[in-house]
């Protein structure tokens, strides 16, 4: 599928800004927010082509946000990619169990982030 709009949730302001710039330069329209509650709120109003969630966020964390997106019939078709600074394999399997199409480890390659997201959405292995 063609991805143009991305909803990005990341509580660390610097990572959020760097990711936002990286994805904008790659040609995406990015909406950056700080936690899962904002993500769910925004999804009520308008659709996005892709949601990128940091794993550890205050209030509603990434996994829970992902589960809720996948539980809602209106949003369950939207692909979700998780970002995490943790490297436990259990995190990766937990992401898949929550319904995410992929998992990107931090620190990620800022120049290749857009392509990686496209690849994960095209090839949800």
């Amino acid at each position: 599928m063609d991805i143009r709009t991305i909803l990005l949730a990341e509580d660390d302001p610097h990572i959020r800004r760097v990711s936002e710039i990286a994805l904008k330069r790659d040609g995406f329209t990015v909406t950056a927010v700080t936690d899962g509650a904002e993500v769910l709120q925004l999804l009520e109003d308008r659709p996005f082509d892709l949601v990128v969630l940091d794993g550890m966020m205050p209030n509603i964390d990434g996994l829970e946000t992902c589960r809720r997106i996948k539980a809602d019939p209106r949003t369950r078709h939207i692909p979700v990619v998780m970002l995490s600074a943790r490297t436990q394999t259990s995190d990766e399997s937990a992401s898949r169990a929550a319904g995410a199409v992929g998992y990107i480890r931090k620190p990620f390659d800022a120049l290749g982030l857009g392509n990686e997201l496209r690849r994960l959405c095209a090839d949800p292995a």
């Binding site: 990711s19 990286a22 620190p107 800022a110 120049l111």
Partner: peptide, 10 residues
């Protein structure tokens, strides 16, 4: 490191 690395790359 994620933001430093990404910022420098960009």
């Amino acid at each position: 490191l994620t933001s430093v690395h990404g910022a420098l790359q960009l």
